[in-house]
């Protein structure tokens, strides 16, 4: 299951890195197949059980859009799934009602997940892109007192 968080199997490509095709070379009425196999039961399959084709944006990355990134702290999280439902980039990975972590290939660093996290201190916080997650967790704030 953890392989859903590793990007090796996806053969990640930076968007726009592929050979450019001129407007007059694009095939008319082009059909892009998202999967390499029959997708009839795709709604019943998790990402790790799917064969994404190279046409699916799942196999691409927008990581370079970020200057800040969310870091996830499992110790405080109550698995409420707020961050999962509101992430605009399908980048919070949840399995069996538990958060596994952040998909840094697709996260754009908007910060919505941090805003909607209800714990105190928050279980998600934004840090500079260059900081390692371990270093971020080492400087996690302690519980804030409620303002009276």
């Amino acid at each position: 299951m953890s392989n859903v968080l590793s990007n090796e199997k996806r053969g990640m490509r930076e968007l726009g890195a592929e050979k450019k095709v001129g407007w007059n070379e694009v095939t008319h009425g082009v059909v892009l197949h998202s999967f390499e196999d029959d997708a009839a039961d795709i709604a019943l399959r998790k990402a790790e059980d799917r064969k994404y084709s190279e046409f699916s944006s799942y196999t691409a990355t927008v990581a370079s859009w970020r200057v800040i990134k969310p870091v996830y702290n499992r110790d405080i999280c109550i698995d409420c799934q707020n961050c999962w439902v509101w992430c605009p980039d399908s980048s919070i990975i949840s399995r069996d009602k538990q958060i596994l972590g952040i998909d840094y290939d697709h996260c754009k660093g908007c910060g919505v997940c941090v805003e909607v996290c209800p714990t105190n201190p928050k279980s998600l916080l934004m840090f500079g892109e260059a900081l390692s997650s371990d270093d971020a967790i080492a400087q996690w704030p302690v519980k804030e007192k409620k303002e009276k």
Partner: peptide, 18 residues
């Protein structure tokens, strides 16, 4: 929690604004 067990059919690395 129950809804979170559903499977995504809309993928990331689209280019909508953050």
């Amino acid at each position: 929690k129950e809804f979170s067990t559903s499977n995504d059919r809309f993928e990331g690395a689209h280019l909508l604004c953050p």
